[in-house]
Amino acid sequence: MNFYIASSFQNKQHVQTLATELKRHGFKHTYDWTKNEKADTFDELASIGEAELEAVKKADILIVLLPGGKGTYVELGIALGRDLPVYLFNEEGFHNAKEASSFYYTSGVTRVEGNQQKLVQIILEKHCFST
């Protein structure tokens, strides 16, 4: 099962920890954007954008760690348009409708709050991997 994690640079360590845990359970990471530096040129933006687009297309599931960056919501849209299961994670929950997107509540999106262990457990349960 291939996965992609969408988030912001501020969550870089959380993304790396989550990716390591999923790979430990046999998942394959389609692209690790945390190895990139912030793009300074249009050519760098284009290269990163193409890599991220292809990675979302190759993914079987998309995981969104909130808060997200600008690209997070594009990646979420690509996944929804491709009918990929989306796991939307926010440690603090989803209690503020003013900050939420209507797309957080569409079919195919599983909202998870709490800790990353809970997120991993839910993903494993839904995709028949042993824990």
Rank of each mutant, 00 (worst) to 15 (best):
Glu21His: 12
Gln121His: 10
Asp32Pro: 13
Ile122Thr: 15
Leu45Asn: 03
Tyr31Leu: 10
His95Leu: 11
Ser102Asp: 05
Tyr4Ser: 00
Glu99Met: 13
Leu84Tyr: 07
Ala100Met: 11
Glu91Cys: 05
Glu54Gln: 08
Ala39Val: 05
Phe103Asn: 10
Gln13Thr: 01
Arg111Lys: 03
Val120Phe: 14
Gln16Ala: 13
Glu54Asn: 08
Gly77Ser: 06
Glu125Ala: 09
Glu37Val: 04
Phe103Gly: 07
Arg82Thr: 04
Gly77Glu: 09
Gly71Met: 07
Lys98Phe: 12
Glu91Gly: 08
Val74Ile: 09
Ala19Gly: 04
Cys128Lys: 13
Ser130Arg: 04
Ala59Val: 00
Thr41Gly: 01
Gly93Met: 04
Gly26Met: 00
Glu91Asp: 07
Glu52Cys: 04
Ile78Pro: 02
Gln16Cys: 09
Leu45Ile: 08
Ala39Phe: 01
Glu99Gln: 09
Leu84Trp: 12
Thr34Gln: 15
Gln16Gly: 09
His29Asp: 14
Tyr104Ile: 05
Leu18Trp: 15
Thr72Tyr: 10
Ala100Ile: 06
Lys12Gln: 13
Glu92Ser: 10
Thr34Arg: 12
Phe89Lys: 07
Ile61Lys: 00
Leu45Gly: 02
Lys57His: 12
Lys57Leu: 11
Lys35Ala: 14
Lys70Arg: 09
Phe129Gln: 01
Glu92Pro: 03
Leu84Gln: 14
Lys23Trp: 01
Phe27Ser: 07
Glu44Tyr: 02
Ser7His: 13
Ile5Cys: 00
Ala100Thr: 06
Gln121Leu: 07
Phe89Ser: 05
Thr72Lys: 15
Ser7Tyr: 14
Leu65Ala: 02
Gly114Ala: 03
Gly77Trp: 04
Val112His: 13
His29Phe: 13
Leu62Gly: 01
Tyr73Thr: 13
Gln13Met: 04
Lys38Asp: 05
Ala46Glu: 02
Val112Met: 10
Val109Met: 11
Met1His: 04
His95Phe: 10
Thr30Gln: 08
His29Cys: 15
Glu113Cys: 06
Phe89Asn: 08
Leu80Phe: 15
Lys118Ala: 02
Phe3Asp: 00
Glu99Phe: 12
Leu124Lys: 06
Glu54Thr: 06
Leu62Glu: 02
Met1Cys: 02
Tyr105Asp: 07
Ile122Trp: 15
Glu52Ile: 00
Asn11Gln: 14
Val86Arg: 11
Lys57Ile: 08
Pro85Arg: 10
Thr106Trp: 13
Val56Trp: 04
Leu45Ala: 03
Ala55Phe: 00
Leu53Lys: 06
Ile123Met: 12
Asn2Lys: 14
Gln10Gly: 13
Lys23Thr: 09
Glu99Ser: 09
Lys98Ser: 06
Tyr4Gly: 00
Leu53Ile: 02
Asn96Arg: 08
Asn90Gly: 13
Leu18Ile: 15
Lys126Phe: 06
